[in-house]
Design a protein around this nucleic acid. Structure first.
Ligand SMILES: [Zn+2]
Ligand SMILES: [Zn+2]
Ligand SMILES: [Zn+2]
Ligand SMILES: [Zn+2]
Lengths: 572, 572
DNA sequence: AAGCGTTCAGACTGTTCA
DNA sequence: TGAACAGTCTGAACGCTT
């Protein structure tokens, strides 16, 4: 959906100025009759368009001239703003409603006319433009087609005086090999095509409208940035809708271009700007959509959720998650990151050798899970008892999942993302934890970590999502019925997010395999309790709830609630 | 110092459009030779200017024509932007550096010329302007004086084509009695003066520059608002500094006026706009000063500190306080107002019959004085002991002054400004207070109130200032030396503010009398202690300081300081 | 690199208010 | 009269896709 996209009918004339650098390209522009017919047929077939008007006569000698002229400079029709509908033959924008692009390969005639004047070899750039546009002291606006003009392209819609007649002589010096011979039968056409080349080089530098410095083609004509913007803003209105504050024959230059819209716009059209090159509203939204999509992809790549430089076909096999999904995911990951910074105040700085490492690690993990949980809206909406149920019932699983997330297999120790400098405080605890948790604890944990990390290729975000899914387990003992519904709803939400993440990270077909496996892992996590028998006390109601309740209260910011325990549900 | 102010030489022609309604005013415009000479002489005498060039010939018949032209429409010189220095004869801005005003009474010629065309009685306003300015299809700019032109005013500086020749016939109908005879010898001048009148009425409506609707004169020419603004913004640059993006002969109209600065500005000058009418930077600051002054006066009137509608001479006898003074004063009054809202929490709502009313009233007053004091920067900078000294030492005086402020003589009771609905709570306390304070207490208080309120005409603000002066008494016992200096400094500040307030409320001479009397009252206040013997306990160190200290601490917002009495100075 | 759209600061204008 | 304001337009700079 973009004018710049390569059109389907490449073989037709392309003269974007660049191609002019390669002299043999000119040959390409001269399309033999048969090819042209073929091309027209293709067009008709492809677009199911009504029969296209043919303007290539079959065997008239004059037809050769007019046709080869078309091949090089196309027809006056395509450049004239007064021609209501450019023919499809010339690759103009299709008249169907499909967002087919205007093409670059056909070329304005108007440029060639005015460019003919530039051969006077002016001394300065400004003079060059002036000569090019007006001659020296041009008469005022004369919208005339002088019949019998010797130069055929003069019949086009230029509103200003014809260039001085020094064209032909100046051309010869620059008319190098390739194009000249091929440029067909009409003798005048030869000089035109050579002139077109020369003019291109000149016009590469100056705006055909106002004479300001130009960077290249805009809307199919060489123009400066300001005229480009002007044309985009005003072309839709049309010349007739604007009115000239003067006499309607303003000569536009760099100093007065701002003043008369009408004459400026008219000149824009005159030098070959085409409003069809301006993106329509639909094309713009489409393009914007594409840009957003790309931005999203780049974000995902940055987050490591998408391999870099995927081919479009590889991309097509995936279902990229939405921007709001990414938003939510990164938010969750940020909460996790913050939770990893939680320290238990009393222990901070003093290596607690006398306290059981088992308790140390577990407590810290639980604290961090609590910290994370309390930032989730879904968790906040639960009643205090239901919160405790989730945390209590899921304590071991959550600790283990957190362990997998923070476990560094390379160094075989736990690392929380922050505080890596003094990492031993946590990492060593983890080792002790595994040793103390039970005889088979280490094996079970490593098995879990390997399955998730290696077999199922879980990355950080995936694991954090899994953690959320685990937290919101609706089948925890003791949940209130209403709480159960809320929890299930939340779990569904995070599970679906997880699934969409998988369909982003992997192909859809692969995600379809991995997703149930992850849920299976979540289920198997429950069976691990036997391996962590010594840790079972963590889920012992006599131990956990007071700790949790207090911590839940303490972090609410309400200094009163800790002192005055209230049994209202949801103090948050 | 303003162009709009009425000039000194009123008798000369004044034709601001309004005067044109009165037909006999035309006589005034025709100034006989002798008057003109006299006028010139006056001008020379007044301004001590070098001899002014005379351009009124003495006894040429042609001179009559040109002179009467001057009388009515002035000379081309005054309208032409090319005349480097307008003659003082015509009331133009003086060439001296004194800020003498440009005058309104002389009139542009350019308008009169173009206005001659308006007699074609166009159907629409726009047509009227177009006819007026250009005729139908005028040739381009021709800065010519055609010699021998039949219409003398045609020789002026209009750059556009002459109006259609239907002038003379249309004029006769409007040439009413008064002016015609007086308008002197040249027959053509008569029609011109009639034309001028007619033109004025037309020109009152249309901008001489662009033809847009005009509201009146701007910079001495009839123009629309936009051309006014344009002229103000660009006149200083001068025509030469601007360049025309076209050929330098733009015909300005409402649709293209914004495009060519140069030609628009040139036309502004052509129609008689004068850059001397634009306020200089100094004039602008002066004007702004005046506006600020007026704003200040209005503020003071609103605050009741200045009688409304003072004559300038009455105003001259006063010294209006500065805006920052007003700011400070209103701030102080606001603090007082807030302090009057202070309630003693424990007593709020329960009528304390068992507690001595004496204590009730006194305590409440002191509390409010403390509340006020603590909002004053100067007070805050004092050390805690010094604060206590001021409050303790001035307690009785401050209570009494507050009493005067809040005393309502009409109902003979105390009213604090807020809580007037349930006013009894305070007002009755006051009565009891006076009864309980001592045998002579009532008399002494009423005496004080009468002196301040009636004799010395103290208003609310004055009394509040007096309260501040009383608070910052540097001779209170127990003040530290540093504190004493600070307090004195503060008292001086408030006393000076008081003095300036008096010089605003009264004439300077009256203020000079009142001010020392107020200070005397402040001194006499000290002698009143004997009349309030029973209240003397208030200044008893055993009673007051603990109360005050606590209250001072309590209102600091520092919850700790009340519980942990700290003897650092200035916890604020 | 070419050629689209987008964004934004700045210039000016002309209206309105005081 | 000036001040202030809102609104328009411009054009340079930038980002993005092909
Ligand atoms: Zn341009
Ligand atoms: Zn124009
Ligand atoms: Zn105007
Ligand atoms: Zn101009």
């Amino acid at each position: 959906g973009h004018p710049q996209s390569v059109p389907d009918f490449q073989p037709s004339a392309n003269a974007t100025g660049l191609d002019l650098q390669q002299s043999n390209n000119i040959e390409k522009k001269i399309v033999p009759l048969e090819d042209m017919d073929l091309y027209n047929q293709q067009q008709q077939q492809r677009q199911q368009a009504p029969k296209v008007e043919q303007f290539v006569p079959l065997d008239d000698s004059a037809s050769d001239a007019s046709f080869s002229l078309c091949g090089v400079t196309l027809s006056p029709l395509s450049a004239s703003s007064y021609s209501p509908m450019p023919s499809q033959n010339y690759g103009g924008p299709s008249s169907s409603m499909m967002p087919q692009q205007p093409m670059h390969q056909q070329h304005p005639v108007a440029q060639d006319q005015s460019s003919g004047a530039s051969f006077a070899l002016p001394t300065s750039d400004v003079e060059a433009f002036q000569a090019m546009s007006f001659g020296n002291q041009p008469p005022l606006y004369m919208p005339v087609d002088l019949p019998g003009q010797p130069m055929p392209h003069q019949a086009a819609s230029s509103c200003y005086s014809p260039p001085p007649p020094s064209v032909a002589s100046a051309v010869s010096s620059d008319a190098t090999g390739g194009g000249a011979g091929a440029s067909a039968s009409a003798s005048s056409a030869a000089s035109v095509s050579g002139g077109a080349r020369r003019a291109k080089q000149r016009e590469d530098k100056f705006c055909g409208v106002c004479g300001d410095k130009a960077l290249g083609f805009n809307f199919d004509a060489v123009s400066c940035e300001s005229c480009k913007a002007f044309f985009r803003r005003n072309a839709a209105k049309g010349v007739e809708a604007l009115k000239c504050p003067y006499e309607g024959n303003c000569r536009i230059d760099i100093s007065n271009r701002r003043f008369c819209k009408r004459c400026r716009l008219r000149k824009c059209f005159d030098v070959g700007m085409k409003k069809e090159y301006i993106l329509t509203e639909e094309e713009k939204t489409e393009k914007r959509k594409k840009i957003d999509q790309n931005k999203l992809l780049r974000t995902l790549e940055t987050l490591g959720l998408l391999p870099k430089e995927l081919t479009p076909s590889e991309l097509a096999d995936r279902e990229i998650m939405s921007e709001s999904d990414v938003q939510e995911l990164t938010q969750l990951a940020e909460y996790y990151r913050q939770s990893a910074e939680v320290r238990v105040a009393e222990r901070h700085g003093q290596r607690a050798a006398n306290v059981d490492d088992l308790i140390n690690f577990a407590e810290l993990s639980v604290m961090r899970v609590i910290d994370l949980s309390k930032k989730l809206d879904e968790f906040r909406q639960l009643s205090q008892p239901d919160k405790v149920c989730l945390l209590k019932g899921g304590a071991l699983e959550l600790i283990l999942l957190r362990g997998v997330i923070s476990f560094d297999p390379d160094h075989a120790r736990f690392l929380d993302e922050t505080d890596t400098a003094s990492a031993e405080s946590d990492s060593m605890q983890g080792q002790d934890f595994l040793r103390a948790a039970g005889p088979n604890a280490g094996h079970a944990f490593f098995q879990l970590a390997r399955t998730l990390r290696s077999n199922l290729q879980c990355d950080h975000h995936t694991l954090v999502l899994l953690l959320a899914c685990c937290l919101f387990s609706p089948d925890r003992a003791g949940l209130s019925p209403e709480g159960r519904d809320l929890v299930e709803e939340s779990q569904v939400k995070y599970c679906m997010l997880l699934e969409r993440l998988l369909r982003t990270r992997f192909t859809v077909s692969h995600a379809r395999k991995v997703y149930p496996q992850l849920l299976t892992q979540l289920a198997e996590l429950r069976g691990l309790e036997k391996d962590f028998s010594d840790l079972a006390t963590m889920s012992n109601p006599r131990f956990v709830p007071p700790l949790m309740s207090e911590f839940l209260d303490l972090q609410d910011g309400g200094s009163g609630s800790a002192k005055h325990p209230q049994h209202r549900s949801s103090p948050l």
